[in-house]
Design a protein around this nucleic acid. Structure first.
Lengths: 351, 351
DNA sequence: GGGAGGAATGAAAGCGCTGTCAATCGACAG
DNA sequence: CTGTCGATTGACAGCGCTTTCATTCCTCCC
């Protein structure tokens, strides 16, 4: 067979007996073309199976219709909803997302930012606020809207929506303390900056309450998963058999801790109360149902995408406020001893 | 501030006092440039924070270094490893993946294929073999390497690596039957074509064994999740209280069924054996540990990516074989009554 | 009836980069 | 000393599209 080149706009134009510009207009601004020409061009497009070359289009128009999105993980259920929310806003608006997973690595993030910038995205949506100086420099000199999500900071690159993880950790501990617990353990994963802040909140709360954390904290450097939660809680149980509650940096670890309790014949919540973080889907399905700190993942994704869209569309109008704290809330379920509703919503607030 | 345009290759050339081609060469073929010019150009690149415009580069060279990847879901742990495996092969080779999630929708898949093709990827990696005719037509007239993964077919678009889900379902039932079960239930999600094939395998096995499936099958049209597994198994329990085993189309539903058993005081595996599918991470962590059908997700991703790379690199050499069945294996764990190793690997084979 | 105004179409230029080919220079063999 | 070869560098054209800007042809209204 002959060398089959993909059809170009010129091929379509020739086939339809019109000029290339007209074909372009049929695709981008159909209302500017007379019905008969439009029909002819559309027929040509169909017979040739023509699909416009996005690269050429972007190059010529200097509008790429691309937004770069960076997430630290995909294995962890947290970013699914978030991504989905972003794409639900952006895709219908004709904006493609270029998603890169940087596996909780600053180096991979720098690399990803450089790569993404090479595609000239019209905006970037990043998870977290812990970008390196080099990352920030690249972003700034690219001069595009940037949204940092999932966390809050006093020094945002541009826009920022998130929650205060230290406050959330603090609140979780206070909640467990109010339930009567004082030997409260914490399981965490060091790789995640937000988990580190939750840990800081835990430590601050324990200190404020005058409680010792001796032997009560277990951390894994690795990516956290359900199995790891069991292993970490086993460590704590060996060191402090009298531990009465455990707060984990995420729901996976919490579920793992519950399984470990089952294995050891420890009753949840009677012997040990378990509290997770993120309120993933399985929290309402597990036995016992898992108390957790609920975060507004979809809200953050939607707001980030909508803001970006507004800026791109309005060619520069900035959403006010530029910083949003969406807060969190404590979801009391069976694993901490009851369905007793104890919402502790921190108000959404403008920073 | 003045209108700050992003630096272009021309800006760098001017800044370094060389021609644009030389700058291009410093980036693409450094060995062709003398050391002193290279140094000067690199300095200019650094001071201007220059990042090459990938779109322009791709347009000019007709090499986009992009591979399109379509997955049906992200919320479901199955595609994380797979994607990771693909990217582990492609990214180091300088190939970017454009990933689109089509949420188990054929319509969204068609849309995604058209979108992806607009970026002129050098190859496409699709999950599943159930693309619509229109999708296949678009793919074919784009004339690029296409890999269909996760499933096998007699009529592949191009390359194909996967496993036979009907066989896998069949084997799972035979395994449970060999354990002494005859009232074997099946929980499934209709939205997933591969789950439908597992269901077909289940039905075929039950028929071959002369067993009734009356009241034993429960399906959800929705996306399956852990909570749904409980609900589906509850339906079966109401209809057939004497059910003694349950095979689910994925691990989420299986875990949900285990939780439902706990809620109802049904012992697993003494009263009901539970068998999942996919062998997700939590299978070894749950209580009891969850028997499952293990699938070679990483292998499929790696093979797909490596094949694509070979074709792109070798400008046309096709890997042999073009079709691979990676098989599956039954992983016997506690939820079906013991750690007794009962591997039933179907041999990897060339089709 | 003539000019203003609008709708439809096309010509030409150029987005930022790379492929190709030509030009230059010095080294080196004969 | 001359022709040849390889290593560097640059000029130029063009990838496939969109953005002006110009042109043509109506329609409408004073």
């Amino acid at each position: 067979m002959s060398v089959k080149r993909r059809a170009t706009l010129n091929d379509v134009a020739e086939h339809a007996g019109v000029s290339p510009v007209t074909v372009s207009r049929v695709i981008r601004r159909p209302h500017m073309v007379s019905p008969e020409l439009k029909t002819r061009v559309e027929a040509a497009i169909a017979t040739l199976n023509y699909i416009p070359n996005h690269l050429a289009s972007a190059l010529a128009s200097t509008r790429t219709h691309i937004v770069g999105v960076i997430v630290p993980s995909l294995t962890n259920g947290v970013f699914d909803d978030y991504l989905d929310a972003i794409q639900d806003v952006l895709h219908p608006a004709g904006i493609q997302t270029l998603v890169l997973n940087v596996r909780y690595s600053e180096a991979e993030e720098e690399q990803a930012i450089a790569t993404l910038l090479g595609y000239h995205p019209e905006a970037m949506i990043l998870a977290g606020v812990d970008q390196t100086l080099r990352s920030r420099a690249m972003l700034r000199s690219a001069g595009l809207p940037v949204v940092q999500t999932m966390d809050v900071t006093d020094d945002p690159i541009d826009l920022n929506i998130g929650l205060d993880h230290s406050e959330a950790g603090y609140a979780a501990v206070r909640y467990l303390h109010r339930l009567g617990h004082s030997r409260i353990a914490h399981l965490t994963a060091r790789g995640d900056p937000r988990a580190r802040r939750r840990h800081a909140g835990y430590a601050r709360a324990m200190a404020d309450l005058g409680l010792s954390t001796e032997g009560l904290v277990a951390a894994t450097p690795a990516i956290s998963d359900i199995e790891g939660g069991g292993a970490l809680f086993r460590q704590v149980l060996e060191r402090v058999p009298a531990v009465s509650a455990v707060f984990t940096c995420n729901d996976d670890l919490a579920l793992g801790a519950i399984f470990e309790c089952q294995r050891q014949g420890i009753r949840v919540p009677q012997d040990v109360a378990v509290m997770g973080f993120n309120d993933l889907d399985f929290c309402v399905a597990s036995v016992p149902t898992l108390s957790s700190v609920s975060t507004e993942r979809r809200t953050m994704g939607t707001w980030a995408a909508a803001s970006v869209l507004e800026i791109i569309r309005g060619s520069g109008r900035r959403p006010t406020p530029a910083r949003v704290n969406v807060g969190f809330s404590i979801l009391a379920r069976a694993s901490t001893g009851g369905m007793r509703a104890e919402p502790e919503p921190s108000q959404a607030q403008e920073a």
